[in-house]
């Protein structure tokens, strides 16, 4: 069937691999917690995360997947905010990878099982192009999601990253204002009535 030719196994299994990476990351950090009481307390949301993700995998329930991912994020944030302390670069990386995992899964779902019609070569090329464009945008979003907060942090602490200069600070400020304006003014995220 056209489906198997269209969707590479890489796209199909990448979200799963990224999720496994995030889980291992949280387990690794959990093992670094010195206090046993904290380990016990943090294990609870982690177990909830694993249980709901397994449930979502078995029963294809969307709400279970959402709860699982929320529990994973909660475990990480609470662990670092209250026990280990937040290291900015790994924390930003973790949040960005988590967002990227959700985006990748949605892309894989959209491009995999719904192609029930037999597609022509031209249509397959178009879909391939669309997939590539979506992946490029996702990559750009992920990079910006790490770089902009880092530069903002650098500005705040003045000199964590050696590239901090007055022009960088000005560009960054302009960028942040632009982001806020875009979010405030663009109506595309509002529900549109037909």
């Amino acid at each position: 069937m056209a489906t198997s030719r269209l969707i590479s196994p890489a796209l199909r299994y990448t979200p799963l691999a990224v999720l496994a990476l995030l889980e291992s990351w949280v387990v690794w950090d959990l093992l670094a917690v010195p206090d046993r009481r904290w380990i016990a307390a943090l294990s609870l949301p982690f177990v909830v995360n694993v249980a709901f993700l397994v449930l979502s995998r078995a029963s294809h329930r969307r709400w279970a997947r959402w709860i699982g991912l929320m529990a994973l994020g909660t475990t990480y944030v609470v662990m670092h905010a209250f026990v280990l302390g937040i290291q900015l670069v790994p924390a930003l990386l973790f949040v960005s990878v988590l967002i990227g995992q959700v985006e990748l899964r949605i892309l894989a779902e959209r491009f995999a099982p719904l192609f029930l019609v037999t597609l022509t070569a031209t249509q397959q090329r178009q879909i391939g192009g669309a997939l590539l464009r979506a992946l490029i945008r996702l990559t750009i979003a992920s990079i910006l999601a790490i770089v902009i907060p880092l530069l903002a942090a650098d500005l705040a602490t003045a000199g964590v990253v050696p590239v901090t200069t007055i022009p960088t600070a000005l560009v960054l400020s302009a960028g942040l204002v632009a982001v806020v304006l875009i979010i405030a003014l663009l109506p595309s995220l509002e529900p549109k009535a037909e």
Binding site: A81, I86, S96, I99, A141, L144, A145, A152, A156, I182
Partner: peptide, 23 residues
Amino acid sequence: NWQVVLLALPPVIVLALGSLAPP
């Protein structure tokens, strides 16, 4: 904790990029 405040930026940036290319 200003580091936790900065963690609010990645979701906002993804949202902003999304709003630049609406469907």
